[in-house]
Amino acid sequence: MTSTGETFPDDLLKLQERLHRAHAEHRAYLAGLPWSVEPVAGWSRGERFSHRGDVPDSPGWSDEQKETVDRMWAGIREFSIAVVDHPYWATVPRDAVVNARMQLKKQVRPAEPSDVTEAA
């Protein structure tokens, strides 16, 4: 039970956790990819404004990397739809749905990317 008195069904809690995990895995995967999807020449800090300093050339993403990102996004969309369309929300008063959804997100803590990579 949450601080607002909500009790969420186990399957909804599991869906929300899977959604958080999918987002964390996606963020971790993106962090390991080149900075640009397409090949782009880098630049020196003096050539353009860059808070990162010198920016190296980006070889772009491989077709496999692009497909992996697309597949990950598809999974995130599926979990998002499953959470939003869960039958539980029909039992929540319309004016309380947003707060209940926020409580669900807080109750099911997002996985940190480091947790995901260690578990893999």
Rank of each mutant, 00 (worst) to 15 (best):
M1S: 09
T2V: 04
T2R: 04
S3H: 15
S3K: 15
T4Y: 13
T4A: 10
T4K: 12
T4C: 04
G5V: 01
E6V: 10
T7V: 15
F8M: 07
D10P: 05
L12M: 06
L13R: 10
L13E: 10
K14N: 10
K14E: 15
K14I: 11
L15G: 02
L15K: 01
L15W: 01
L15T: 02
L15H: 02
Q16P: 03
E17G: 15
R18V: 03
R18F: 12
A22K: 04
A24Y: 04
A24M: 08
A24L: 03
A24G: 08
H26F: 15
H26V: 06
R27P: 04
R27L: 12
Y29K: 05
Y29S: 05
A31E: 10
A31Y: 08
G32L: 05
G32E: 10
G32D: 12
L33R: 13
P34L: 08
W35S: 08
V37I: 14
V37K: 13
E38P: 05
E38S: 15
E38L: 11
P39D: 11
G42T: 05
G46E: 12
G46D: 14
E47K: 09
F49L: 09
S50H: 03
H51K: 13
H51G: 08
R52P: 02
R52T: 07
D54V: 00
D54H: 04
D54P: 00
D54W: 00
D54R: 04
D57I: 01
D57H: 10
G60W: 01
G60Y: 02
W61C: 01
E64N: 06
Q65P: 00
Q65A: 12
Q65R: 03
E67T: 11
V69Q: 02
R71T: 08
W73G: 06
G75I: 01
I76K: 00
I76D: 00
R77V: 07
E78G: 07
F79I: 02
S80L: 02
S80W: 03
V84D: 15
H86R: 03
Y88L: 00
W89A: 04
W89P: 04
V92K: 03
P93I: 04
R94F: 12
R94I: 13
A96M: 14
V97A: 06
V98K: 12
R101V: 05
R101P: 00
Q103A: 14
K105P: 05
K106I: 07
Q107D: 10
Q107G: 14
Q107I: 09
Q107R: 12
V108D: 08
P110T: 13
P110L: 06
P110H: 09
A111F: 14
S114M: 11
D115N: 11
V116D: 12
T117S: 14
E118A: 15
E118G: 14
E118T: 13
A119E: 15
A119S: 15
A120N: 13
A120E: 15
